[in-house]
């Protein structure tokens, strides 16, 4: 799972009002190289929750993202490269996602988070 998906994903348990962001407990992290597409990065940037994205990248061991961002930085090649790396190249392979409100743990195996809920959580 890439951080792009993590940034869109929230906890879906019934009654949970603030299921975002899911905390990450990473066991295995992998990096797969992908071609950079600046257009996509600029398109997706306004939709990202930057703080959650930065925190998530920390828990996957990527530390070179700035704390404050503004859209002007998207013109900077160096920033785009780091942004691209954290968003699309770093994969969480094994680990756990944790709901911030209920503490419910969603296991991630082979890069696929198991978001299935139990009967009483629907």
């Amino acid at each position: 799972m890439r951080l792009l998906t993590h940034n869109m994903l929230s906890c879906n348990i019934k009654g949970v009002t603030n299921g975002f962001p899911l905390a990450i407990e990473a066991t295995t992290v992998e990096t797969k190289e992908v071609d950079m597409n600046p257009d996509f990065l600029r398109h997706i940037f306004p939709k990202l929750e930057w703080k959650a994205f930065r925190d998530a990248s920390h828990s996957l061991g990527v530390d070179d993202l700035p704390e404050q961002v503004d859209p002007d930085m998207l013109l900077d090649e160096e920033f785009l490269r780091r942004f691209h790396h954290a968003l699309l190249e770093v994969h969480l392979e094994e680990g756990v996602l944790i709901c911030p409100e209920t503490g419910r743990r969603f296991p991630v195996s082979k890069g696929i988070p198991n978001m299935l809920l139990n009967e009483d959580e629907v």
Binding site: M1, G19, I112, N114, L116, V122
Partner: peptide, 11 residues
């Protein structure tokens, strides 16, 4: 990829 049941809603 996500393992999820769409009948439970998309998170």
């Amino acid at each position: 990829l996500l393992l999820s049941d769409i009948g439970q809603g998309l998170g």
